[in-house]
Amino acid sequence: MVSIKHAQTQYPVADLIRKRWSARAFSPQALSQLEISTILEAANWAPSAMNEQPWRYIVALKQNEEGYQQLLSYLNPGNAAWAKDAAALVFSYAKTTYARNQQPNINALHDTGMANQNLLLQAISMNIYSHVMEGFDKRKISRDFNLADDEQAVVMIALGHLGEAAQLDEPFRSREATPRSRKELGTFVKEL
């Protein structure tokens, strides 16, 4: 089943990129502290404007039941239905002002996105799958974690080893078994 999720690209992109996809079926296998620290270390080495490194993370491994349930509680019901089986949940947020002068960092969300992509690619290099989610209560999580006025919720990320599509209810089971597709380059690239 996983082979249908490997991207069928027009051009020879790196296998790591072809292999990464948004899984929903996670196995009960736990992540170790070394694994999660390695994944977060990769995020830390993303490029950032003025080396500001605006990304921030709150992480809960499933072994920490209280923290895990807290992060899970912010997810929309559709995401929580399958994300409950992930080995870790990660809340990603960004500091939107520069530390040196408190001026707006218009690159903060972009740079946090780059850090998140490093996180995803490091994870898949370790055969740890991920799913990035926008569907969560940003207002409540921001309030509960006392995010400052210049800190913005970005995404939640589920991480874990791959499970079986059969463990999912519909419509998620079908989505897990559907091949991936992308737009043709000509629809979003203009060459001069």
Rank of each mutant, 00 (worst) to 15 (best):
Gln69Trp: 05
Gln69Tyr: 00
Gln69Lys: 06
Gln70Tyr: 02
Leu71Asp: 11
Leu72Ser: 00
Leu72Ile: 07
Ser73Phe: 07
Leu75Ile: 01
Leu75Lys: 03
Leu75Val: 08
Asn76Asp: 12
Asn76Cys: 00
Asn76Met: 07
Asn76Gly: 08
Pro77Ile: 00
Gly78Tyr: 13
Gly78Gln: 11
Asn79Trp: 11
Asn79Glu: 05
Ala80Trp: 06
Trp82Arg: 05
Trp82Ser: 07
Ala83His: 07
Ala83Pro: 11
Asp85Asn: 15
Asp85Gly: 04
Ala87Ile: 04
Ala87Gln: 04
Ala87Thr: 01
Ala88Val: 04
Leu89Phe: 05
Val90Ile: 10
Val90Trp: 07
Phe91Trp: 15
Ser92Met: 14
Tyr93Glu: 01
Ala94Pro: 00
Ala94Lys: 07
Thr96Arg: 03
Thr96Val: 13
Thr96Ala: 09
Thr96Tyr: 03
Thr96Trp: 04
Thr97Ile: 14
Thr97Tyr: 11
Tyr98His: 14
Tyr98Ser: 02
Asn101Gln: 09
Asn101Arg: 07
Gln102His: 14
Gln102Leu: 14
Gln102Cys: 10
Gln103Val: 02
Pro104Lys: 12
Asn107Met: 14
Ala108Leu: 09
Ala108Gly: 03
Leu109Arg: 12
Leu109Tyr: 12
His110Ile: 06
Asp111Ile: 05
Thr112Pro: 01
Thr112Ser: 14
Ala115Asp: 13
Asn116Val: 13
Asn116Ile: 11
Asn116Tyr: 09
Asn118Met: 11
Leu119Phe: 12
Leu120Cys: 08
Leu120His: 10
Leu120Ile: 03
Leu121Phe: 03
Gln122Cys: 14
Ala123Gln: 12
Ile124Asp: 04
Ser125Arg: 11
Ser125Trp: 10
Met126Arg: 10
Asn127Cys: 04
Ile128Pro: 04
Ile128Arg: 09
Tyr129Asn: 14
Tyr129Glu: 15
Tyr129Gly: 08
His131Asn: 14
Val132Ile: 15
Gly135Leu: 11
Phe136His: 11
Phe136Thr: 04
Asp137Gly: 07
Asp137Val: 10
Lys138His: 11
Lys138Thr: 11
Arg139Gln: 15
Lys140Gln: 15
Ile141Trp: 06
Ile141Ala: 05
Ile141Val: 15
Arg143Phe: 09
Asp144Ile: 05
Asp144Thr: 08
Phe145Val: 08
Asn146Gln: 08
Leu147His: 09
Asp149Ala: 12
Asp149Arg: 01
Asp149Trp: 06
Asp149Asn: 09
Asp150Leu: 05
Glu151Tyr: 07
Glu151Ile: 03
Gln152Arg: 15
Gln152Gly: 01
Ala153His: 07
Ala153Val: 05
Ala153Met: 01
Val154Trp: 08
Val154Gly: 02
Val155Ser: 12
Val155Pro: 00
Val155Tyr: 12
Ile157Gln: 07
Ile157Thr: 14
Leu159Glu: 01
Leu159Cys: 01
Gly160Asp: 12
Gly163Ile: 00
Gly163Thr: 00
Glu164Ser: 09
Glu164Tyr: 04
Ala166His: 10
Leu168Gly: 09
Asp169Trp: 04
Asp169Phe: 02
Asp169Cys: 06
Pro171Ala: 03
Pro171Leu: 05
Glu176Ala: 06
Glu176Asp: 02
Glu176Met: 05
Glu176Ser: 11
